[in-house]
Amino acid sequence: MDYHSPASFAEASALAANATGITRFLAGGTDVLVQLRSELVTPDTLIDIKKIEGVSDITKNADGSWTIGVAATGAEMSEHPELGGDWPGVVEAMDLIGSTQVQGRATLTGNLCNGSPAADSVPAMAAAGVTVTVTGPEGTREVAVEEIPTGPGKTSLSKGELVSAVHIPARGEDGGDAYLRFIPRTEMDIAVVGVGVNLRLDGDTVTEARVSLGAVAPTVLLVEDCAKAIIGSTLDDAALDALAAAASAACNPIDDKRGTIAFRTEVAGVLAKRAAKIAYARAKGEQA
């Protein structure tokens, strides 16, 4: 295995473009090292992007949007004095991944590019409308988060491409987001179901909504029917029931060691309701 630590994304991209065999980028390494140690994936070329300047920065831009460096860790996101105020759902989703120790290393970008259908931060990012900058041999492009994973362990990134920044939109007024996942224990598990909800209110009425599901299909799902179920409502019981039904209907899960089809389908609806209530309360400026 060759190990490189380039000083720029262009250099990283060039290394990857010219490499043969399996190439992996190393940010926090909490997936790459597990796969390496268990000999699931032994890269021929490993490109550590942490020596690139600014990759750990968390920046609030003038328009209120956020740029998150690709090596900024979950712990750094949680500790940031303002980020969690704007996007509590995204920060909490990231924070749910692994242990305190894993939080010291794991990144949004790694969680996204690992391509796991159960990645916790991805539904939260999709609901929040997060985009990423992809740097490749042909230059850079902006891609919506939900366009990155294409199946378990697979992404839409082509040879030589890597994510070079994460962009979270400006929170704006009267908005709130939330992410909930189901795991059998209280910590340390992979999501059996994950639900991200991001909405905006006008008074008591939901005017905008994005609802995203994780671990219930080969990739993260951004479910328009879920959004429709609550837009225009005050999140009354009927709207919540419609939301749950739409979430369950969108599921296309598998039976595996972590959960059954029936369980995932049912619980997706349960969590969608609970997450929507939290997002709603946050949009109203209430504690949740």
Binding site: G29, L33, S38, S99, Q101, V102, G104, R105
Partner: peptide, 27 residues
């Protein structure tokens, strides 16, 4: 465990708690 699930290898790196099994020696 070698997979970051047990914490028996915990160390701190530049003041940050990590699993030393989830970090390369070269890093």
């Amino acid at each position: 465990c070698g997979t970051g699930d047990c914490g028996a290898c915990s160390v701190s790196v530049d003041g940050r708690l990590v699993c030393s099994c989830l970090m390369l020696g070269v890093e």
